[in-house]
Write a protein that binds this DNA or RNA. Structure first.
Lengths: 228, 228
DNA sequence: GGAGGTAGTTAAAAAGTGTTAAAGCACTTT
DNA sequence: AAAGTGCTTTAACACTTTTTAACTACCTCC
């Protein structure tokens, strides 16, 4: 099972590193940011699966941060940490699209349980992440053998075609950012690689076009999404 | 290769025997149980290599059954069949330690591919890196004596052929990079050696071509992989 | 609505691979 | 020493995969 990549934005250094250590011990990959601006920078720079944001932070508060994060990734689960049981905070938090919130002080164990609950809830279509065989509309894709089959025909995919399709299959109905795909498959993210990736997107679409129910959709400036 | 002994727990009699027949035709040894209790009895009575468990069954559901099976054998691969795409089921399934799951209705071909993928995955640890004798599909390869045997014939391999095949056998389903193979077998990595290696790849493929289930696959620019 | 970045597509260049046959080499046999 | 034998390397050509380039279309924001 892959590690969950978690962004923790918390200005209180003591609490921040305590949480980071605890969550890392629980096998999360935790990046700690010490204010809202730093958190946004880090978020835009790498890929995350989950955000824990303190509401009151210097430079940029948790809610504004959440809004900007949501424009980049409308799906990512967000859990807020509020300093006091402030009615206002709670309301505002859910308006921004919080998946949950916790009022300090809280037990780390409870936090962990809530994170797990949210992950369960939001992980809807996701299949076994280690799977090597995927079912895609009328296709069956065997990523080990690089074979994309349908009832009547079988395509032998090249390495790159297969790698890219596998990445999409592992992230069905989720946005895969360009830079993530490029780093993962092409090893790094540069302008020229980017155009190479576009060529492969075209190729995959050609293979898949006989089933209208699945498509690789572009989200302008954000990345691609395999919807099915 | 011996037959894989497979326990199939499925209360729907039609589906159950259909699957049983299909999998037996694919050379599995299939025992069909029609509820959870019967499945457990059978499991405790004999030896199995693989379990396919329906989640919803009378008397004992698939998850409870899986737990009891796991106490007896924590290693055995388990694949669940779920009636509908129930989020809960999936999560619970993976908590119990499912290796994969499939949602009804599914194609039998996909089921077969997934079973094979799991078997490949879980068998990996079995490979003894110091072994001198390898089983490769219908072949037996003795790297000490440079002999590649099948039921009806025996090939005497040359030193280089044998060294290269041994390297692949020690890294089944893993990518072996060109430069690694060249350094190990040819002593160094230069353009001309590289072409020599290609010639040997061709030779090995010729030996192995009578068994379609094993193949030496090229990963463009990365290396080769023996998949079986 | 136009500028500038982003994406879709095709074709050609470049890099890498598959295969066959002949040349080279070491080692035996005559 | 010449000829033969078996293995390995080199060379050559066809082919595949990946990248680069070029052109077109599109989306977003001022």
């Amino acid at each position: 099972m892959n590690q969950i990549r978690l962004l923790l934005a918390e200005d209180d250094h003591n609490l921040g590193s305590l949480l980071q250590e605890y969550l890392m011990a629980k096998d999360f990959n935790v990046t700690l940011a010490k204010d809202g601006n730093q958190a946004l920078d880090v978020f835009l720079d790498s890929e995350f699966d989950f955000c824990i944001l303190d509401v009151m932070m210097p430079k940029k508060d948790g809610f504004s941060l959440a809004k900007e994060i949501r424009t980049k990734n409308p799906e990512i689960p967000i859990l807020f940490l509020t300093a006091k049981s402030m009615q206002e905070d709670t309301i505002k938090g859910f308006e921004v699209g919080a998946d949950d919130y916790m009022t300090k002080p809280f037990s780390m164990e409870e936090l962990l349980l809530r994170i797990k609950a949210i992950l369960k809830r939001t992980k809807k279509g996701e299949i076994n992440p280690d799977a090597e065989v995927f079912s895609l509309g009328k296709f069956i894709f065997n990523s080990l053998q690089h074979e994309l089959k349908t009832g009547d025909q079988i395509y032998k995919l090249t390495t790159k075609e297969s790698d890219l399709l596998k990445l999409f299959c592992q992230n069905q109905n989720k946005t895969v950012s360009r830079s993530y795909a490029l780093k993962l498959i092409w090893g790094d993210d540069s302008y020229f690689n980017a155009r190479s990736m576009d060529v492969y997107i075209t190729k995959l679409r050609k293979y898949l076009k006989s089933d209208a129910s699945i498509q690789i959709m572009n989200l302008h400036g954000e990345g691609f999404k395999l919807v099915c």
